[in-house]
């Protein structure tokens, strides 16, 4: 207890001793934010600025023209943009939820349960991390087809659930939970589900939040399942819609602005999820019983 009452985690005052840290942190931090500033500024640039040479980093005369023309594009296709968005939301939410659950269960079992195959399974998982996903496109298609997942939401969800990074990260975090803690809970009469939900889950929250962010990235930006497994236009996702935008209109001069706006629209949900999840990552780490 003393450890987190005794030292204040976030000092409220600025002291001279902190200067040496800021000397490094501020310039590095600016570099980190640049790409995001660039994205916003690019989307807000009017056409003549987009083709300026030498290109400017920041927008000079911001305009929402690009965004407006992006939204008015919906008249071109029969299906409203909202349908794509709806699909994306449904698919993303299910993938994130299911990926979290399977990663947590697998990571916990591989770390704390003793059974013959657990080392082998984890090694296989780590090796699976290394394979180029593009190389398994055809076989995956065959599987999806055989399972009858073509033109169903499951076709979006199931192939993305295999998230080796998730299992990898969760397992590493569960490893850090002392066995004594789990044994003590078991002695106190906690069942496996209770141990898992009440002890393990709260302690691996940083890992879970990270996995959630990574899973969301993968699914939200994924246009592949739509183009490969879905032939019905009404089942395709927003990411797919965006790629068709940039290929159909991105090639001509006027399309550049719309493409930049589309990139921004694609990116904003990532940012929102990130801001929402990262506070969980950071908050829980300081107070987790991992000490």
């Amino acid at each position: 207890m003393a450890s987190f009452h005794g030292n204040k985690i976030n000092p409220s005052r600025f002291g001279i001793g902190q200067v040496k840290f800021f000397v490094f942190l501020i310039p590095l931090g600016i570099v980190m934010i640049l790409p995001i500033v660039f994205m916003f500024s690019q989307a807000l640039k009017p056409l003549d600025e987009l083709f300026l040479f030498p290109p400017t980093f920041l927008v000079r005369q911001p305009t929402i023209e690009n965004l407006v023309s992006l939204l008015s594009l919906k008249d071109m296709s029969v299906i409203p943009v909202t349908k794509y968005l709806f699909n994306s939301v449904v698919v993303s939410v299910s993938v994130v939820a299911l990926a979290l659950l399977t990663s947590a269960m697998t990571g916990y079992a591989l770390s704390k349960k003793k059974f013959k195959l657990r080392k082998t399974l984890f090694e296989i998982n780590t090796i699976a991390l290394m394979f180029v996903p593009a190389a398994v496109t055809i076989p995956r298609y065959l599987i999806v087809e055989k399972l009858g997942l073509i033109n169903t939401y499951w076709g979006h969800v199931l192939p993305l659930l295999a998230l080796p990074v998730g299992v990898f990260l969760v397992k590493q975090f569960v490893d850090q939970i002392p066995n004594e803690l789990i044994e003590a809970a078991a002695i106190d009469g906690a069942r496996d589900t209770a141990v898992f939900l009440r002890i393990v889950m709260p302690l691996i929250k940083p890992a879970m939040a990270t996995v959630a962010i990574l899973a969301f990235q993968t699914v939200w930006n994924n246009a592949e399942t739509s183009s490969l497994y879905m032939s019905k236009e009404t089942l395709k996702t927003f990411a797919f819609y965006m790629t068709t935008l940039s290929t159909t209109i991105g090639n001509n001069v006027a399309g550049q602005g719309v493409a930049a706006a589309a990139a921004l629209v694609m990116f904003v949900p990532n940012l929102i999820i990130f801001i929402f999840m990262q506070s969980k990552v950071m908050d829980t780490m300081a107070h987790s019983g991992l000490k």
Partner: peptide, 29 residues
């Protein structure tokens, strides 16, 4: 990890690239 002002903020910033480096966004960039 140092006790400095605005620690939360800096943490968020340095973790931010995670959302940039995956998928379409980074290619666009």
């Amino acid at each position: 990890n140092q006790p400095i002002r605005g620690r939360q903020f800096f943490r968020a910033i340095f973790f931010l690239p995670v959302v940039i480096t995956s998928g379409e966004v980074v290619q666009e960039l």
